[in-house]
Design a protein around this nucleic acid. Structure first.
Lengths: 214, 214
DNA sequence: GACTGTGAAGCCATTCACAGCT
DNA sequence: AGCTGTGAATGGCTTCACAGTC
């Protein structure tokens, strides 16, 4: 299949993920064919945007007709790398880490949690989502044995860089960081931050701004 | 104080939140004065970006010198609306909702959780983070009595729109949605989505792409 | 000399509008 | 007639480069 190579906006990748989830739902409902307008309506965008997002990667539809739901979804999932399963380790078994370990949304897509780690001796050996909580000194070995490629950091801010340093040494490929701090990793490791307070603070800014402009 | 009024990029607001957290940390460490370059280094950006972000809102520094840490942080927090405390209700006391109720990072900024709701009869009346879990039919009343302005949705995707509809009726001002689905709200309600699987899927796309371009 | 504040330039993403196909 | 695919136009954000200030 044709893979065009201009720089793809990250926003496009995020939307592809949303389109894919929507298409999976439509497919389950028995929908066979769909238009860019219907995808836009179901995912909160514009039809031109939907078509442009697809256009970066090829031609998936039929002019005058639309897209086959199954085919399109397969294509998007392949683009996103979801035609294989990914092994994930989670560091931090506090409230947030525990929630993430048990989050079913990951399994429903292509992600399997294969290790949970915490430095609290009281938690060691306890089971969480079918996994034993291990000490951080088992992290590198587990990543290598399991061939885990993605790590989720869910530890307090002051421990996040230390955890990241172990992950770097363990040759992890990507990190999803929930700790409310900036962490530094080499350029070849993919890093994304999910910042809970930043999201709330954007909301308060927007409330305040919309209330003063009226 | 002078409030300039051109459209502010949302990315700027998100960075201001990160700057503020960084400045709070520096302030606690006793740092008095700081330059845009030091802020950039501590938050992972460029010094020009830092100065431009501030410039949308006024002049907070002294040429040739830098910024006073305390003053600058106060200014940013006021811009973000964090010079008051905000009351938050959380709907969904599953793993994720429970974690959010107990998340200390919210209190450390300006957010107080004043209500937790779940439709599971087994959970009703249980305490979570010092709050009793209430049934969803108490949601509207609680929001009005407590004057809560922000809601966090942490329920399964198939219940998210129903919860949102109650929130709309309750005149909530902003919603932070963790359910993996698109929800529709009127334009005057601020909405942000935190999508856990989307973030992982951007990572898998990036891993795949960086591995095929070498 | 050091650092801020900012117009201008450059770059990137989205929207438009229409040609191309069924 | 209906819908996709896409070059061109638009709009928005970031970076540059330097004038202004201490």
């Amino acid at each position: 299949m044709i893979m065009k190579n201009p720089k793809i906006p990250e926003a496009t990748i995020m939307r592809l993920s949303v389109y894919s989830r929507f298409l999976t739902k439509q497919d389950k409902k028995g929908v066979i064919s769909i238009s860019s307008g219907q995808i836009a309506e179901g995912t909160g965008g514009s039809s031109a945007q939907v078509r442009k997002d697809f256009a970066y990667f090829g031609e998936f539809g039929t002019r005058g007709v639309g897209y086959n739901v199954k085919d399109l979804n397969h294509n998007i999932m392949r683009i996103l790398g979801l035609n294989k399963r990914w092994k994930v380790v989670i560091i931090g078994a506090g409230n947030l880490g525990s929630a993430l370990v048990q989050y079913k949304g990951f399994r429903n897509r292509a992600f399997d949690v294969v290790g949970v780690f915490d430095n609290d001796p009281l938690k060691l050996g306890l089971y969480l989502g079918g996994l034993r909580i291990l000490a951080p000194d088992m992290l590198e070995q587990t990543i290598k044995e399991q061939e885990a490629e993605i790590a989720i950091i869910a530890v307090p801010a002051n421990h996040a860089q230390g955890v990241a340093d172990i992950l770097i040494q363990s040759k992890i490929k990507a990190i999803l960081n929930f700790a409310p701090t900036v962490i530094n990793v080499p350029f070849h490791i993919e890093l994304r931050n999910v910042d809970l307070t930043v999201n709330l603070e954007v909301l308060t800014y927007n409330i305040k701004t919309s209330e003063s402009n009226n």
